[in-house]
Design a protein around this nucleic acid. Structure first.
Lengths: 243, 243
DNA sequence: ACTTGACCTTTCCCCTGGGGCAGGGTTGCA
DNA sequence: TGCAACCCTGCCCCAGGGGAAAGGTCAAGT
């Protein structure tokens, strides 16, 4: 009949852990000797080893406790479930490891240099610093979120801005920030943007809308929050494109 | 400038999680709007994504917080360490899975039938119930701990007990339980046991001693605790074998 | 016989990584 | 003007223990 300390050392857990298991009903309290010390036998040791095997598999203590009163068949079934969960969490960790390595491999780099160059272009084309900052935030987010497709999206956007007529639309969008929400010029701008969008993508497919739902609504939220006029512009454009 | 709820949804965490990260200093508290709501920008979003990547790798929040002030080189070094730890914990889970499957495969079966038969033999040979119980505990433990080697050890032991002269030594060990610790018969028994051991294994290798250090000290502890005479016997045998 | 150190007992609060609730204020939309 | 859906802070809860306090017990050495 060994003491709690010997049992703990043998199984490789702390004394505290064994007492916690008693408190939570995982391991029955053994008899005490004359001085009130707990005294354990070999059965307790193998019970404890089983409990630890399950606990190390991530099974919550309450579930291990319930398993104590399970039949053989229920127990086997539970073990299969636990095994599956274990497999899933191993897969999860492996996926995390992949992401960790992507992080290490430099996807923390703020932005490709060509994007930085493009942002400087914007200022020279007459966009406000506010707009440039917004664009920087947008591309950081897009590159963080869709590292593989971001550069394509970026080239597409850069090409659009190389066209002076289209660029003017964006300049007008930028300027609209400070208009009153009910300024009639907003309606005109919305119509022109919708028209250009339809010409660019055809009447059937509107990839920009799809892209916009993937490219974080975060940015549109930012845009809308900072100006009532922009909010109205967004509402008008969406309504006309969906019509 | 988005709200906490939008940020949470975007990154895929709970609002609570973000607030916890503020409290723990992982993510700086952003500015508040006029109504006291936190307002976030894209930088916060990518910071949060980085934090989540590390947190999902099992990195404690305190360590992630410290990483915030690390240089690029320190950060890369930390990532390598985290990667290694992740590999180790995946290995650990896989090992747990193996043990879980052993458990499911029936290593919970108390004891092979031939061991049960052997224990009944012991009683008929004149061993006390106390000795038989001790042997049962021992074999339960050995089969739980070394499932692959236990049956070999058991056959070895059964063979030894089939020899009447050697069996008498164990019977004498059993009987010695109730002697006084300073009874001279204990010294005689110790000498006979040491002699038999040397004859059985030769003078150079003493596999029983090695096995005894692997086969849980738990049992020897139990043995020693239950009788001063047995304790003395153990001490004498060890001293003479090591000499 | 006494001390010493290692062990044991109980109770209590601490930690991490959040979840959930209470009780209140704010915003947007009809 | 109402209502749902936000947001705020503060609080307690969970698992799975760690560690400290304050005391009882045991074996060894002197």
């Amino acid at each position: 009949m060994i003491t709690i300390g010997q049992l703990a050392k043998y199984v490789g857990v702390s004394i505290k852990t064994i007492r916690v298991y008693h408190d939570k009903g995982l391991l029955p309290e053994p008899d005490r000797d004359v001085s009130g010390y707990r005294r354990y036998d070999a059965k307790d040791a193998i019970d404890l080893i089983k409990i630890r095997t399950l606990a190390e598999a991530g099974v919550p203590l309450a579930r291990i406790r319930d398993l104590r009163s399970a039949t053989g068949e229920e127990f086997q079934q539970a073990l299969r479930e636990i095994d599956d969960e274990l497999t899933a969490s191993i897969r999860g960790l492996q996926a995390t490891q992949v992401r960790l390595r992507e992080l290490a491999a430099g996807h923390l780099a703020p932005l490709p240099t060509e994007v930085g160059a493009h942002l400087e272009h914007l200022a020279r084309w007459g966009f406000t610093p506010r707009w440039v900052d917004l664009q920087r935030d947008l591309w950081i987010l897009v590159f963080a979120t869709y590292p593989d497709r971001a550069i394509t999206l970026f080239h597409d956007q850069a090409e659009t801005l190389a066209n002076p007529a289209l660029r003017q639309l964006f300049l007008d969008y930028d300027q609209a920030h400070d208009l009153d929400a009910d300024d009639p010029r907003i309606d005109g701008l919305a119509r022109r943007i919708v028209k250009a969008t339809r010409e660019h993508y055809g009447p059937d497919e509107l990839p920009e809308l799809d892209a916009a739902s993937e490219i974080p609504a975060l940015i549109q939220g930012t845009v809308n929050a900072s100006s009532p006029a922009w909010r109205r512009l967004d509402t008008l454009i969406r309504a006309q494109l969906e019509a």
